[in-house]
Structure formats: structure tokens, C-alpha cells
């Protein structure tokens, strides 16, 4: 509003006015920046609030749990919750072990398998390619619950119930339509000339895939790997459906649900500590790979 007044200022005071305007503009800029930052920080506080509460509650002494406070008045920090959870032989460690097995297999396996399939769809020529790819894409539209329930009987036949197999074997069969789609998009961006050159050098298709494509696809491979890790880490429905309560193979997500959600047996601070420990690897991985993740998401949404 005030800026609009500037042109009507008398001309003889021009130089002085210009300086004043400049100064004012600078002030306005600073104020605006400050407001922006204030808003940003306030929003960050809102978004980080759940983490904050979780951490605060996890170190609360037992007797303060029912007092509806975030901070203890006694000045005592209780790390006993963490030591209890992580002490040898605790159930949590076995959950962690199972989850790590599944996460390790899928984090390595899914990028490899899906890149293999994507290579077939992106760079190979064979009859019916488009149809097959169309069918693979169409499976994305099928709600997961439809197959989740009948697969139970199939896994029962395989003897897979109460084992870790349902959590990782299916994902090694192609690695999921979304991942194949992403990889294929990425590979199509790699010029065919390079492949032709390699072919002239006598390289077969697998060598081209392994030596040429994989290194070039590194960003998207990393993206898929991180997503697979997070997926395996957080997956709830698969273990919930195929593992029975008290099974040896319960993973973190399910274990935390059974042991800590709404259970009067455990105190809130212990539950929160379990949550913090479960969240930590996700946060660390995210901070390390955030560039690939955020840029990778950009690829996901765009060209369909």
C-alpha cells in the first residue's frame, strides 16, 4: 500500500526520497523474511511435535506417567526404558532381528529384480511387450486386500505361515509394479546409441544391463532401495495377516502393535521408547538419502 505512494513524491526531493524508499524496502524485506522464518519455524514445530512428545514421554520416570505431563518435576531422566527394551533376550531384540532380515533382503533384492524387469521392458524387443507391461501396470489398481486374504490359504499350502517368507519372497518376483514403472521410465531416458555401441563391441544384453545400465541407474536404484527398506520396516498388514500372535517371527511393526498399543500391561514411557527406537533408523536413512528420496519422488509423480 505504502509503496504505491512513492511515484507522487515531488521531484526535487527525488534523491533523498529514493534513498528513503530504498531503506524502507530493505526494512520491508527483512521484516518479510523474519515473518517467513517465524512461520517456517512454527510449522516445523507443529510437524515435529509428535517426535518431540514421543521422546519426552520415553524418558519420563514411571511414576510421572499417569500425571499427564511431558516433563518430570523431579528432574530425573529415566533411560531405564531403553535399557529394558534393548537388554539381552528381550522380545524387542527378536522383533528387530526379524525386521532386519526382511529389510536387508528386500533392500538389496527389490532394486536388482525390478531393474532387471524394467530393463526388459525398456530396452528389449519382444512380442507382446506392451501387453505384458500393461498387465503389470494394471495390477497397481487392484486393492491389496483382495489378494491379502486368499493368499493366506496359498501360504498355508506352501508352509509359509508363521515364517518370514511372506514378507520377502513375493517382493522378489518383480519387486512391485511401481518400482518397475519407475525404473523403466528412468531407463528410457538413457540413449539407445550407448547400447548400440556396446552391442557393436560384442556385449550381450546381460553385460549391457550389468555394466552399462546399472551404474547409470544408480540414483533411481538408491531411491527404490530406500523405499524398499522403509516399506519392509513399516509393513504392518503382511505380518499382521500371516503371522499368528506369539510367533517367533514377529517383526517390529507387529510387535510394537501387540505389545504396546493400548496395553495396560506396559507403561507409556516404555512404549514410547520402543517407538523412538523403531523410528530412529528411518530418520537416519532419510537424512542420509534425502536428496535421492525427494528427487526420486519427483520422478514418481510426473510422467505418466
Amino acid at each position: 500500500m505504502q509503496e504505491e505512494n512513492i511515484p507522487v513524491l515531488p521531484s526535487q526531493e527525488g534523491a533523498e526520497a529514493a534513498a528513503r524508499t530504498k531503506k524502507r524496502a530493505a526494512t520491508v524485506k527483512i521484516v518479510r523474511l523474519a515473518v517467513d522464518y517465524l512461520f517456517l519455524i512454527a510449522l516445523a514445530a507443529v510437524f515435529l511435535f509428535p517426535f518431540f512428545v514421543m521422546i519426552c514421554l520415553s524418558i519420563l520416570p514411571d511414576k510421572d506417567i499417569y500425571r499427564q505431563v511431558l516433563f518430570t518435576s523431579s528432574g530425573v531422566i529415566n533411560f531405564g526404558t531403553y535399557t529394558k527394551i534393548l537388554s539381552g533376550g528381550s522380545k524387542y531384540l527378536s522383533y528387530l532381528g526379524n525386521t532386519l532380515i526382511v529389510a536387508a533382503i528386500t533392500t538389496v533384492g527389490i532394486p536388482l529384480v525390478s531393474s532387471l524387469c524394467a530393463y526388459g521392458f525398456a530396452k528389449m524387443e519382444f512380442a507382446g511387450k506392451e501387453v505384458v507391461f500393461g498387465i503389470v501396470l494394471a495390477t497397481m489398481m487392484i486393492p491389496a486386500v483382495i489378494s491379502l486374504v486368499p493368499l493366506y490359504t496359498l501360504y498355508a499350502r506352501f508352509g509359509w505361515l508363521d515364517t518370514l517368507f511372506p514378507m520377502w519372497v513375493p517382493s522378489l518376483f518383480g519387486g512391485g509394479a511401481t518400482n518397475i514403472f519407475l525404473m523403466r521410465q528412468f531407463m528410457r531416458g538413457i540413449p539407445n546409441d550407448m547400447i548400440k555401441a556396446a552391442q557393436l563391441d560384442g556385449a550381450n544384453s546381460f553385460v549391457i544391463y550389468f555394466r552399462l545400465m546399472l551404474p547409470l541407474c544408480l540414483p533411481i536404484l538408491l531411491y527404490v532401495a530406500v523405499q524398499s527398506f522403509l516399506g519392509a520396516w513399516n509393513d504392518f498388514m503382511t505380518p499382521f495377516t500371516y503371522l499368528s500372535v506369539g510367533s517367533k517371527h514377529i517383526t517390529l511393526a507387529l510387535g510394537v502393535y501387540y505389545d504396546y498399543t493400548n496395553s495396560s500391561q506396559t507403561l507409556a514411557n516404555e512404549a514410547m521408547a520402543a517407538g523412538v527406537i523403531m523410528t530412529l533408523p528411518c530418520a537416519v536413512i532419510f537424512f542420509c538419502f534425502q536428496k535421492y528420496l525427494i528427487d526420486g519422488v519427483a520422478v514418481t509423480g510426473m510422467k505418466d
Binding site: 515435529l48 520416570p61 516433563f71 528432574g75 530425573v76 531422566i77 531405564g80
Partner: peptide, 23 residues
């Protein structure tokens, strides 16, 4: 931000005990 979190929650001593035994 980390300092703020720490300052807020860190009061003084550290206790690794289990607290109220009855629980």
C-alpha cells in the same frame, strides 16, 4: 532445535532405575 529439545527435557541427573516397583 536439538539444543532446545535437550534444554527442555534435560533437568539434571540421570536415573536408570525402574521407578515404582509396584508397577
Amino acid at each position: 532445535i536439538m539444543a532446545a529439545t535437550l534444554a527442555l527435557s534435560c533437568a539434571c541427573s540421570i536415573d536408570t532405575g525402574g521407578g515404582n516397583e509396584n508397577n
